[in-house]
Design a protein around this nucleic acid. Structure first.
Lengths: 201, 201
DNA sequence: TCATTTTTATACTATCCGGTATTTTATGTC
DNA sequence: GACATAAAATACCGGATAGTATAAAAATGA
């Protein structure tokens, strides 16, 4: 409410569009690698000055955290929806396989997995958020698998916790392979093979 | 023969021991991350000056390539031996699982996999060597699996090429998880699960 | 003793990084 | 038009990087 005022009315009007800058940053981090994108290049790509960026985001950590947040809202949210889709074990796994191996947005990998892989290079806040998202994702996988188990679709001798971790890592692996230019058909084959352990006869 | 002369006899005698420097570099790259170790810190750790290092290795790329070569000789060679051990499919897979999930040398990960993961940050020669080793490893996995297939131990409907790639990636995943501090027992569980696709009843 | 050779040690360059101090510019208000 | 305000643009700072020019040191040969 306090910030929703139409215009500050005083001072030079801002030309910087925070949303657009964030979009540029998210895509830059996403399509290359968070560790290889400097604030300088982001300013250049977004056509703004460094002080403007720092006024808006405070620090590089603030910017990368905001970019990750945006990515979580725009992309990861969709994955979470898949897990609550209410299709059975096989149907949901098939959807995950489709997403990881053929969704065009994953062609250059996943920003979240890239950040997680280079966790130690991130700032404090961004790293904390990465760990938070990781825990959330693992919980979602576990809930999904638990539901399948409750429905009787579950191999003997496998704990839900290990299965959830395994499922998450296999998807991460598949998407990371997308980023390295691997043939999607082959990625699909390997991911299907890996996840076949959940649907053994 | 030309370089095997006992001593150059002229000039100030060198105090730098190339083997020892290479050992320091290899371990530094290995135990942290190739991209996070500068030539400055290696000089410091090895107690030598920068010009000495550059005279011996030419460039950072030359040093990292030499370090990778040493790693291949000292560590990777052992993995290749495992694949030609002549134990059956199950025996060799068990040995690989042991190595990836419990060998103390893999506690901080694998230098080769670390370099492969950050391939784009490497110099030209080092990157080329990484790709070479990658191809060699994949061929070794394929030969091992082909032998198992010839011996009749093979699941239907799986190509050796995909199986080899899959096997290699699962081992890389397990060892990478070691480096990130994951519980070895859990890594073993997941890797065993992943490789169970080769020994299905 | 003095010159030659080869390695070492020190100091330096150029570039990039994240972050900031300073100045300019564009607006609303009086 | 004069003034206050807030943003933008420019230029800068300190530090780290890969790589190098230069000088000092330690050996041999004469």
């Amino acid at each position: 409410m306090s910030d929703a005022d139409k215009g500050p009315a005083r001072g030079r009007p801002r030309t910087m569009n925070a949303e657009q800058v964030l979009d540029v940053a998210m895509k830059a981090y996403w399509h290359s690698d968070p560790a290889d994108v400097s604030v300088n290049t982001i300013c250049q790509m977004a056509g703004i000055s460094k002080p403007s960026l720092y006024r808006e985001f405070g620090s590089e950590d603030g910017l990368s955290r905001a970019a990750l947040e945006r990515y979580a809202d725009q992309v990861l949210a969709e994955m979470f929806v898949m897990l609550h889709g209410g299709q059975g074990l096989r149907g949901t796994l098939a959807a995950l396989i489709d997403f990881a191996s053929d969704d065009p947005r994953m062609e250059t990998g996943c920003l979240f997995y890239k950040m997680r892989a280079g966790k130690h290079r991130l700032g404090r806040d961004t790293r904390a958020r990465v760990e938070e998202i990781d825990a959330t994702a693992q919980a979602a996988y576990a809930a999904f698998l638990q539901a399948a188990r409750d429905a009787g679709e579950w191999p003997e001798g496998l704990s839900v916790a290990v299965g959830a971790k395994y499922l998450g890592e296999q998807i991460a692996l598949a998407i990371t392979q997308r980023a390295s230019g691997e043939d999607p058909a082959r990625i699909r084959e390997m991911l299907t093979l890996a996840l076949s352990v959940f649907t053994r006869p």
